[in-house]
Amino acid sequence: MKVHVDMNLCQSHGECVAVAPDIFQLGDDDLLVWQEDVPDDRRADMQEAANACPMMAIRLED
């Protein structure tokens, strides 16, 4: 699956980092960096990360 983050919306709250620190990280400039291709067995995690985002910036694609 693919993980998309709308960087126009992302405000670096780090909620996704708390859910899945191996997929999402905050860089030195406070901007989010993330792994776009994620194995399908992480779907529940990714959905939780998307739900946790206060800016609704995370979108999942099959």
């Binding site: 709250h13 780090g14 980092v17 708390a18």
Partner: peptide
């Protein structure tokens, strides 16, 4: 303040 990248450590 403006320290977003430090929050995961404190969390």
């Amino acid at each position: 303040v403006n320290a977003a990248r430090r929050l995961p450590w404190y969390r």
